[in-house]
């Protein structure tokens, strides 16, 4: 291959590369690639865990932290807004005129026969042998009449 032909091929390849780069650039604008994670700086010292492994803990025990009791959170009362019911205004009902019927029926109160009143006997004498007339005569003459 001559040097000229070689140069032509190189230029052609270079053009193809440029076109591909341009094409890729256009596609990135339309579909941006997620950002590559930032490279973290490499710490100059080892992490604490490793540090602890390297350096043994002090002899004195670490103070136990007191438990932190969270204060109770009192929820603010939620006062619902009064709901005003919608007023339903009934349509006025016009009553039909009632024409009273003349009262002709006479109701009679009928009760069961009343229980008989008892007679109390106070002095042991058989009242049944006395007639009412005799009892009333004795009662009338009690204490005398004059």
């Amino acid at each position: 291959m001559s040097a000229d032909v070689h140069m032509e091929k190189l230029e052609e390849l270079l053009d193809r590369v440029k076109r591909n780069r341009l094409k890729l650039a256009n596609e990135r604008i339309l579909h941006p690639e997620p950002m590559a994670p930032q490279e973290l700086p490499i710490p100059s010292e080892p992490p604490p865990a490793i540090k602890e492994e390297l350096a043994p803990p002090p002899v004195a025990a670490a103070p136990i932290p007191e438990p932190v009791i969270p204060e109770p959170v009192i929820p603010e009362p939620v006062i619902p807004e009064p709901v005003t019911p919608e007023l339903v205004i009934p349509e006025p009902v016009i009553p039909e005129p009632v024409i009273p019927e003349p009262v002709e029926e006479v109701r009679t109160f009928e009760s069961a026969p009343v229980a008989s009143g008892p007679v109390a006997q106070m002095d042991g004498r058989p009242i049944r042998e006395w007639t009412l007339k005799a009892v009333l005569n004795r009662a009338w003459n009690l204490g005398g009449r004059s």
């Binding site: 026969p113 009343v114 008892p118 007679v119 009242i127 007339k133 009892v135």
Partner: peptide
């Protein structure tokens, strides 16, 4: 001839129906 029971029967019913109380006839 009527007895005291007749008086007690009638008077007991009468006072009861008028709401005046229950009446009892007593002979002493």
């Amino acid at each position: 001839p009527p007895g005291v029971e007749n008086l007690a029967d009638y008077l007991g019913g009468l006072t009861a129906v008028f709401g005046l109380g229950r009446s009892v006839v007593e002979i002493r």
